[in-house]
Structures are given as structure tokens and as C-alpha cells.
């Protein structure tokens, strides 16, 4: 901090205009991006019958906790929460390990397999066999009714690998050279020299993987939907969401009395959104310091 204020003193006029303009611009961005979230929050605390009238902005008109009570009245979400946490943590660790290792080998311009493996991986981003072959594969691998179906199939992700690699490409090669001269093998170089320098990108990828794992519900539905000890929080919330929503197709039956009663309280939906996103938002500050404050090469060197 002291250093920063010192550098303020040396500012030119242009720099100062830049800073002021930047702060004004960013404040506008702040307001614009904060609004949707506040809106969801406000609606989630608003009486669901009143919400229908519309016009809720960032403050509930008729405050209530009822919407949250509704969600938790559907039964215990504790197991589902645990599974979600577990898949997020295990999935992130596995993915980071696998992707960073592969990324390192691809960042080595002298690696023989570099070209082939790059092409082999990148194609996976653009081709897909579809739902049925994927389902049959999981069945044949014995991954149905199993926790591992959450973390294993997506463990090696080409997109993340290329992101990590492009970060590694920017690291000075001299570091590796000197380690090599000290007799370190490739794995040691990766683990001891490269990985510590990659914290910003690893934190970013960890965030991507974690959010992806946390939000996933379709794999639960496909493979573990009938196994209540393996369902995830997102899946359970999805169930609640759907049963509060009147079935679109059912409505085709023109005037069936029972369906007249299925209403979709938007406030409950918003409360579900909040329950979904708040836990994952809490992860962010832990990771954020790695890419806002920054790691410096100098710090590592010394």
C-alpha cells in the first residue's frame, strides 16, 4: 500500500484522467452487474403471491422467509449438499492434476508427442457422439449408480489444458534449463518449478471446474437419479423447481381441473437460485487473491 501511494505522487495528468475515468466507468459496471443478483435476492424474499404483480427491483415489497421455508420443507438436503461438496472438491482436484500435467507436456516444445496429442485433444471440443452412446458407455464401464460418474468422464478437459499451456508458454524457459542442469527429471521440474508459478491460472481453472461441478445436475439425473444417497443438491433443487412449475405439455389437455392448481411461484424459484449460488460464491474469495493480487516471479525466485 505504501508503495502504491508513493507512485500516485509521480502521476502525470494523463494518468490521473485515466484513473478517474476508469473509476467512473467501473462504478457503472458495478451497478449494472449487481442489479440482476439483487433483483433475484429481493424477489426471493418477497411474498410469492405479491411477486406476480411484478415491479420488484432491488428491495422486497412484502418481506417473507416463506419461500426458503418451502424449499427446506421438501425434506433434508443435507446428503445432497454433502455429495455436491464432495464432487466439487474431488472433481476439481482430479481435473487440475490431470490437466496441468498434460498441459506441461504440451508446453514442452521438444516433446515428441506434442503435435499429435494437441490435435487429439482439441478435436474432443468439437465432436460428440451424442446422448445414447455416452449413456451406454457409462453403463458398460459400470459407472451407473456410482459417485465416480460425476468426476471421471470430464476429468481431462482439452479447453482447460490449452488454457494452462498458454500460461506456461509465457514462463521463462531459463527456469527449466537451470533445474535440468541440477539433474531434476521432467516430473520434478513440473512439480517443483512450473506448478508453483502457475497459481493464477490454476486458481482460474479450479474456479471453472468447481463451478461446473457444482452446477451440474444432468449427469445425476441420467446416471444416479434413482439413488437417493448419490443425488446432488442441484438435482434435488431442480426437482423442486420442476414440481412447482406447471407442466407445459400437460397444459395441452385444455381444461383439466387438476392442472389449474399447479402454480409456479416465481419467488420460490428465485430462492432456489440463491440457495444454489451462494455456497459457490463463497469459494471465490479464496481463489481470487491468486489472480487479483498476483504472484510475482520475483517472489518465487527469492
Amino acid at each position: 500500500m505504501a508503495k502504491l501511494s508513493a507512485s500516485y505522487g509521480r502521476q502525470t495528468l494523463g494518468d490521473r484522467v485515466f484513473d478517474i475515468g476508469n473509476v467512473i466507468f467501473m462504478t457503472l459496471v458495478l451497478i449494472a452487474t449487481l442489479y440482476p443478483f439483487l433483483n433475484v435476492l429481493a424477489v426471493s424474499f418477497n411474498d410469492s403471491a405479491d411477486t406476480v404483480r411484478g415491479g420488484i427491483t432491488i428491495w422486497p415489497r412484502e418481506f417473507t422467509l416463506e419461500n426458503y421455508k418451502v424449499i427446506f420443507s421438501y425434506g433434508t438436503l443435507v446428503t445432497a449438499f454433502q455429495i455436491s461438496v464432495l464432487r466439487t472438491i474431488v472433481g476439481t482436484i482430479l481435473s487440475l492434476t490431470a490437466c496441468s500435467m498434460v498441459a506441461y507436456t504440451l508446453s514442452r516444445r521438444d516433446f515428441q508427442g506434442r503435435k499429435f496429442i494437441s490435435v487429439f485433444l482439441v478435436l474432443t471440443l468439437y465432436v460428440s457422439g451424442g446422448l445414447i452412446p455416452g449413456f451406454l458407455l457409462m453403463k458398460n464401464l459400470g459407472l451407473m449408480n456410482s459417485f465416480w460418474v460425476y468426476v471421471l468422464p470430464g476429468m481431462v478437459n482439452a479447453f482447460y489444458i490449452f488454457m494452462i499451456r498458454s500460461f506456461m508458454d509465457n514462463l521463462p524457459y531459463a527456469l527449466q534449463e537451470s533445474a535440468k542442469l541440477d539433474g531434476a527429471n521432467d516430473f520434478t521440474i513440473f512439480w517443483r518449478v512450473i506448478l508453483p508459478l502457475c497459481k493464477p491460472v490454476l486458481a482460474t481453472i479450479a474456479l471453472f471446474v468447481a463451478v461446473g461441478q457444482w452446477n451440474a445436475w444432468f449427469d445425476t439425473y441420467l446416471y444416479n437419479g434413482s439413488n437417493s444417497s448419490l443425488t446432488t443438491l442441484q438435482f434435488e433443487l431442480m426437482k423442486i423447481l420442476q414440481s412447482t412449475t406447471s407442466g407445459a405439455d400437460q397444459a395441452r389437455g385444455s381444461n383439466i381441473v387438476e392442472q389449474m392448481r399447479s402454480v409456479s411461484p416465481d419467488s420460490v424459484k428465485m430462492a432456489i437460485t440463491i440457495v444454489t449460488i451462494v455456497p459457490i460464491l463463497l469459494v471465490y474469495p479464496f481463489l481470487q487473491r491468486y489472480f487479483v493480487q498476483g504472484m510475482t516471479l520475483g517472489a518465487v525466485k527469492s
Binding site: G129, L137, G154
Partner: peptide, 16 residues
């Protein structure tokens, strides 16, 4: 460090 994961990708992305 890379081949096992290439096989991995083959199983989960190429077989289907």
C-alpha cells in the same frame, strides 16, 4: 504424464 490421459480421452470422448 500424458499418455494415460490420452487413453482416458480416447475412452470417454472418442469411443462414443
Amino acid at each position: 504424464m500424458s499418455l494415460p490421459f490420452v487413453i482416458w480421452v480416447f475412452v470417454f470422448s472418442y469411443i462414443p
